[in-house]
């Protein structure tokens, strides 16, 4: 009952009752667990709602802002590569206290691609939640052993003289790929540049968009 009351006055965009409870057994179980935790005072409905809003505020646009700044400001890029955590905070972005962001740069010689083979570690603070494929068993098993065919599935074919460097983020580090700045973008503004930086390019399965 708390659950229904709780939703009736906060979320007008969709009907929470039909969208969540009829979804699946897991959806129903989630409602039950959440209701119990709220009843027990573990957290309040407001606190949970606030947390969802925080999550929704995190998106690849944040990472794109970081990359675009690195493209136009060599000193910033140097700081980002030396200490990404501080460089990200410098732009007013929040990071997680439980993990540390490290930036890796794609160059003419090296292409970086990120995976977490054990679970789904991902720089959520600046990219939001990972896409479904990043969490899939197929990506996790395949990209470490056969990165080039996997990248080809994403439409990225790299010549053999570019070394592919796979990062398996097994521990407390969260990797951000700085894609190469596309050619012919000298006159673009920082905001326009950020528009070329896709989520997939910051995971390393794509290049930044070209003009």
């Amino acid at each position: 009952m708390h659950d229904h009351d709780d939703h009736s006055h906060h979320d007008h965009s969709h009907d929470p009752i039909t969208s969540e409870a009829e979804d699946s057994l897991f959806a129903a179980r989630e409602v039950a667990i959440r209701t119990l935790l709220i009843e027990k005072g573990i957290f309040s409905a407001d606190e949970l709602r606030h947390r969802v809003e925080l999550m929704e505020g995190r998106s690849p646009a944040l990472g794109a802002k970081v990359v675009a700044r690195a493209w136009i400001d060599g000193a910033y890029k140097a700081r980002l590569l030396a200490d990404a955590e501080t460089a990200v905070q410098e732009l007013g972005l929040e990071t997680m206290h439980t993990s540390k962001i490290v930036a890796v740069e794609n160059t003419d010689d090296t292409h970086n691609v990120i995976v977490c083979t054990l679970c789904s570690c991902y720089p959520i603070a600046i990219l939001g939640r990972p896409p479904a494929w990043y969490k899939s068993l197929a990506y996790r098993s395949r990209v470490v052993a056969n990165p080039r065919p996997v990248l080809e599935e994403f439409g990225l074919s790299l010549p053999n003289d570019v070394a592919v460097r796979v990062h398996d983020s097994t521990a407390d580090i969260r990797y951000l790929v700085i894609p190469q700045r596309p050619e012919g973008t000298e006159n673009l503004s920082e905001v326009e540049l950020a528009g070329l930086v896709t989520r997939d390019s910051m995971i390393g399965v794509a290049l930044a968009q070209s003009l």
Partner: peptide, 21 residues
């Protein structure tokens, strides 16, 4: 990569980096 996987299909300069305790 050529040390990790038998018959690794890519070039020998391909690498894998991983965080270990």
């Amino acid at each position: 990569q050529t040390d990790l996987w038998v018959n690794y299909s890519g070039p020998e300069q391909d690498t894998l980096r991983i965080d270990l305790f």
